[in-house]
Every structure is written in structure tokens, then in C-alpha cells.
């Protein structure tokens, strides 16, 4: 399986608003589960459906964006709770990359270890992309992590992401476990120099 995420293309799906927290992305009541499977249908649930179950005006309900895989957002997206259920639900809904003005740190970290690029662009570029996609939802959107650029239609703009995430996504090494376990001896050596692990370690009372 090719794990590289160097290039991601498809179509966009804009969700406007600053400070969209993870409680809004996946309300807590849907986290009563022991697997992430099935979370896709609850993405943005309370923003998409009224309490009587009727659909509200939201781009995740909008037929025009039905095939959209690149989520486009504004500032501080994914703030609040650390729940990985948030990017997991977006991913299971069909989202494979996010373009935004800025991201909350834990959310961005969760995306990185799931192999989902979360790239930053200027306010102006995000506005143009959102407007472009709203005008023509079928316009091709492509993220190129090598070039650190997004292309849509005939337009192109620069994006940024932490260098560590960029390298890992390009090389396909975003699943960190194997990389961490490879340093077994160094982990043991580190533990052996930490005073509370050695000098005054406490066993179970």
C-alpha cells in the first residue's frame, strides 16, 4: 500500500467559520463507542440536523459537495477537546485533506498521525478558494506537498505545514509507532537517567 500523501487531489467542500471546535465536529454523545467505525455519518451532526431530524443548511448536507474530499476551513479549526474522533469522523465521511487559515495544535497532530495533510494558507487565499468552490463545486483542487502549493482551476497559491508533518506525509512514514519502537535502546537509556524513574521510583501502594 502506498502511504505517501505527497499529492492529494479531488474537489473541495467549504465549511465557513472561525474557532470551530471538536464538539461541533463530533458531538460527545456519538463518542460512546469502542471503535471509530461508523463515525462518518455523525460528522458535524448537530450543525447538519435539527433536533427533529430535519436537515439544516450545511455544506456536508449539500448535494453539490457530495464528492468533496478536501475540506476548506478558516481560523483555529479543531479547537477544544483532543478527541481523535473528530478527524476520524471527517475521514470516514470522505475527507482526505484539510486546507485552513490555522488549526488547533492537538487537532493538527491527530491529522498528522492519521496521514491527513492539514495545510495552512493566508486568509485571502482561503477566501478565494472557498468562493471558487462555492461558485463551481466541481473545480479540481490539488494539494502538492513537495511544492507546498494548492492548485484549483487555473489558480495557484502557497501553503505551509510543519516540516516534520510534511516529510512524514511525503515519505509515507506518518504512522509513528514503528519509528518510535525502533529506538528501543535509546528509550531505555533515557528512562535510566530520569531521577523519578530510578532514584525515587514509586511502586504500587
Amino acid at each position: 500500500m502506498d502511504l505517501s500523501r505527497a499529492q492529494i487531489s479531488g474537489t473541495g467542500i467549504p465549511v465557513r467559520g472561525n474557532d470551530i471546535d471538536t464538539d461541533r465536529i463530533i458531538p460527545a454523545r456519538f463518542m460512546k463507542c469502542v471503535t471509530f467505525e461508523g463515525l462518518g455519518e455523525y460528522a458535524f451532526h448537530d450543525e447538519r440536523f435539527a433536533e427533529d431530524g430535519s436537515a439544516k443548511d450545511h455544506s456536508f448536507n449539500d448535494e453539490r459537495y457530495r464528492n468533496g474530499n478536501i475540506l476548506i476551513v478558516n481560523k483555529n479549526f479543531g479547537c477544544g477537546s483532543s478527541r481523535e474522533h473528530a478527524p476520524q469522523s471527517l475521514n470516514r465521511f470522505g475527507i482526505t485533506a484539510v486546507i485552513g487559515e490555522s488549526f488547533a495544535e492537538i487537532f493538527a497532530g491527530n491529522c498528522a498521525v492519521m496521514g491527513i495533510p492539514a495545510v495552512r494558507a493566508t486568509e485571502n487565499d482561503v477566501q478565494q478558494l472557498m468562493s471558487g468552490v462555492e461558485k463551481d463545486p466541481s473545480v479540481d483542487v490539488a494539494i502538492d506537498l513537495e511544492e507546498q502549493a494548492v492548485r484549483f482551476g487555473t489558480e495557484q497559491f502557497a501553503v505551509t505545514l510543519p516540516d516534520s508533518a510534511r516529510k512524514a506525509l511525503i515519505s509515507g512514514t506518518w504512522d509513528t509507532t514503528a519509528m518510535l519502537l525502533a529506538n528501543d535502546a535509546a528509550i531505555a537509556a533515557t528512562a535510566a537517567r530520569i531521577p523519578y524513574m530510578v532514584d525515587f521510583a514509586v511502586s504500587k501502594s
Partner: peptide, 29 residues
């Protein structure tokens, strides 16, 4: 610095965690 195991190929630090607390919502997966 005390908890840094080394630098990873990604450029990130590998950080030793001295205490891991676990609860029922974010751990089953």
C-alpha cells in the same frame, strides 16, 4: 531536554513520557 530520547527522521523529538493516564473514552481504540 531531560526526556528527549533523540531526534526522529521527521525532525521531531522523541519524548519519553513519565506518566500515562488513561480513561474510558479515548483508549479502547
Amino acid at each position: 531536554d531531560l526526556h528527549t530520547v533523540g531526534q526522529l527522521s521527521s525532525g521531531q523529538d522523541q519524548l519519553f513520557i513519565g506518566l500515562h493516564l488513561v480513561h474510558e473514552v479515548t483508549s479502547p481504540q
